[in-house]
Design a protein around this nucleic acid. Structure first.
Lengths: 125, 125
DNA sequence: TGTCAACCTAGACGCATGTCTAAGCAGACG
DNA sequence: CGTCTGCTTAGACATGCGTCTAGGTTGACA
């Protein structure tokens, strides 16, 4: 599978994570925003958000596409498209084993997003 | 533009918040996903993510639009449009005082999103 | 080899979104 | 009152995105 080289990708972030201060403490530089926004965007669709939660909460840490698809009133290709979006956002990983494809969450990026959104109660006035 | 009545809005969440378990613990019902996804979507644009961080990290808890606009290579109306999106997502509040309009963060929804994304390290196999 | 099931890719189509310019509204100030 | 500044609204335009159907590709199995 070809992955376009974007200079700094979300996958890289997962490895060398640097951007991990709550946004209430300091504002985000444009480059960081450009890298992280796609992850938020990927979670910005109800179907993908639900898919993500199903994957993240799956017992054993992984779940088969064949268990995801019937949970929605959508065609297989549409679910596949959403899963691809989550994959390209660095939020999930896919692996084929025998007949089925299994998805599992990649906690790295999600943790970064969570840290970013974490707001200190002390900030309140 | 007409706004369709969705039954449960993001503003309501801020008040009666119920959905606050990390998605690694249990999967999100469709209704909750439908309500929260727009907030992620609002953060899914680099400009808005940066705007949000500038607002959230502003000293005194608020910042003037006149301080936000010149930070971008975009027209005033475009920034105004993005701010409206953040407002409608329940992420920020606006208030006009004298000549200027000030924006401040609404921590409620952001905290919910952060909680949702928070992943226990114990989930690993 | 043929066939079936699971999943992805390709391409099309309509609606949403990000951007702009032009025009409007609200205060400040002479 | 007139005008200027700060910000929003309105409308237009190109691009992006969510969905579908049709057609691959991969692996299992008789």
């Amino acid at each position: 599978m070809s992955k376009q080289t974007v200079g700094l990708s979300l996958i890289d972030i997962d490895a060398g994570a640097s951007c991990c201060v709550p946004m209430s403490e300091q504002s985000i530089p444009a480059e960081t925003a450009a890298v992280l926004a796609p992850a938020f965007k990927a979670l910005g669709d109800p179907v993908r958000l639900q898919l993500m939660s199903m994957i993240a909460s799956a017992p054993g840490g992984e779940i088969c596409v064949c268990d995801l698809t019937p949970a929605f009133d959508l065609s297989g290709p549409t679910i596949s498209h959403h899963l691809k979006t989550l994959r390209e956002a660095g939020l999930v990983d896919a692996e084929r084993r025998r007949t089925w494809v299994y998805y599992r969450a990649r906690p790295g990026v999600m943790r970064q997003l969570a840290t970013l959104l974490n707001i200190q109660p002390t900030t309140d006035v």
